[in-house]
Amino acid sequence: MAPPSKPLISIAIEAYNEEANNLSPPVDTIAALCTQDFPLELVELILIGSPRQFEYWGHFCLPEDAFWNVHLLPISASNAHYWQLKNEAAKVAQADYLAFIDCDCLPGPRWLPALAEALRNGADVSVGFSQYRTERLDANSALMLAAALPSWGFVLARRSTPQAGALVAHNFAIRRDLMLRHKFSTLKHSFPSSLLYFDLLRSGARFSFQPDQRVAHGMTFRWWLTRMHFRRGWETYIGRQSDPDWPRIKALEQIPLIEPIILRFALVCRDARHWFRYSHHLGLQRTRALCLFPLAVVASLLARSAEMAGMYAALLAPDASANQARF
């Protein structure tokens, strides 16, 4: 059978990452993509990063014959920041559908079929669960399930059924023509995915949340607490200034020294509610969800406390804490 003239989906894997592992090879990510229950001859794979990263990746064999095409796209180091890489991948993609995943993420077994189904059924954007993994713990271990609660809770809207309330850049799919019209901001912060979400909402884009569209992001506990969640709190004030639709409670903004405490511990309550409402979509039986609930609450308290510390650092010592909140 002759190969199709164009792919159905282009998957962009960028090589940018935190400075500790910024040469992370996408071998595990690609291996997981090769096991998807989906015809890979309909999939274009785009690997994008700096020339130095491609030199490092050259030691690994890529399964080029498995996909419609494997497009290697070196980008000059000066343009190889996270958001720029994703925008560049959208420009060169050949398919009508575009999926984004990071080089340190493992897609779940039905990641690709789930997002393809959503877009085929009329969604403009598809998002799913974001989980975590370490070298020793997989995404379904007790600690990783608890640590992931604030992250996947962020993506879910407050509804009785799972619906998209945000998007994260390492796990979403979108119609390419829409992505070309609504690009990522290239601010060197972690929240341009939120800015894109607000922009897409204002344009009338239709969102879908797919429980099977799961990825497990590589992490260390130090990064999770002192970098990612600290940064999320630190960037709150910048995010508010960047988009009028950024969530805010105007009354709390009038009492800045109290706002971080109330705002972040309100999110602990939301996390607890989300755990009972949505954790079964991750495959947790009711008994296990109940047993893990105290651990999930502790993880939420730690994460939100780090965010609260980030807000106070941005409020009281922004210059001194900027390096800790770098992206």
Rank of each mutant, 00 (worst) to 15 (best):
residue 215 V to W: 00
residue 201 L to C: 15
residue 180 L to N: 05
residue 304 R to A: 01
residue 85 L to F: 05
residue 237 Y to A: 10
residue 276 F to L: 14
residue 179 M to E: 03
residue 228 M to N: 06
residue 57 W to K: 07
residue 226 T to S: 09
residue 153 G to A: 07
residue 269 C to W: 10
residue 45 L to G: 00
residue 30 I to C: 04
residue 146 A to R: 02
residue 40 L to S: 04
residue 230 F to N: 01
residue 184 F to T: 01
residue 174 I to S: 00
residue 50 S to D: 07
residue 242 S to I: 03
residue 162 P to A: 09
residue 95 A to L: 06
residue 67 F to V: 08
residue 206 R to K: 14
residue 212 D to E: 15
residue 189 H to Y: 08
residue 284 L to N: 03
residue 110 R to T: 09
residue 72 L to I: 15
residue 134 T to M: 08
residue 264 R to T: 06
residue 201 L to P: 04
residue 35 T to I: 13
residue 100 F to E: 02
residue 2 A to P: 12
residue 193 S to I: 03
residue 326 R to W: 06
residue 226 T to R: 10
residue 233 G to R: 00
residue 287 T to W: 15
residue 54 F to C: 05
residue 169 A to C: 11
residue 79 N to L: 14
residue 163 Q to E: 15
residue 123 A to V: 06
residue 48 I to R: 00
residue 231 R to M: 08
residue 238 I to T: 12
residue 149 L to G: 01
residue 203 S to H: 15
residue 248 R to C: 09
residue 152 W to K: 01
residue 172 F to N: 01
residue 95 A to C: 09
residue 236 T to A: 14
residue 219 M to K: 09
residue 83 W to T: 02
residue 173 A to I: 03
residue 180 L to T: 04
residue 235 E to G: 05
residue 172 F to R: 00
residue 130 S to E: 14
residue 262 I to D: 06
residue 21 N to F: 15
residue 302 L to T: 02
residue 1 M to I: 11
residue 171 N to M: 05
residue 197 Y to W: 13
residue 61 C to R: 13
residue 223 W to V: 03
residue 177 D to V: 11
residue 250 K to W: 12
residue 59 H to I: 07
residue 318 P to H: 05
residue 153 G to V: 06
residue 24 S to C: 14
residue 274 H to C: 12
residue 286 R to D: 11
residue 169 A to T: 10
residue 105 C to Q: 04
residue 55 E to K: 09
residue 94 Q to I: 01
residue 256 P to G: 09
residue 204 G to K: 10
residue 110 R to S: 08
residue 42 L to Q: 11
residue 171 N to D: 03
residue 111 W to N: 03
residue 14 E to N: 15
residue 236 T to V: 13
residue 319 D to H: 15
residue 1 M to R: 13
residue 148 A to S: 14
residue 193 S to Y: 04
residue 93 A to G: 06
residue 228 M to C: 12
residue 59 H to L: 14
residue 64 E to H: 13
residue 240 R to H: 11
residue 59 H to C: 10
residue 276 F to Y: 12
residue 174 I to C: 06
residue 57 W to R: 04
residue 142 A to F: 06
residue 247 P to D: 10
residue 74 P to N: 07
residue 161 T to I: 14
residue 159 R to P: 05
residue 19 E to S: 12
residue 274 H to P: 05
residue 285 Q to A: 15
residue 232 R to K: 15
residue 47 L to D: 00
residue 33 L to M: 10
residue 16 Y to K: 09
residue 301 L to H: 09
residue 213 Q to P: 07
residue 65 D to C: 08
residue 260 P to L: 06
residue 288 R to C: 10
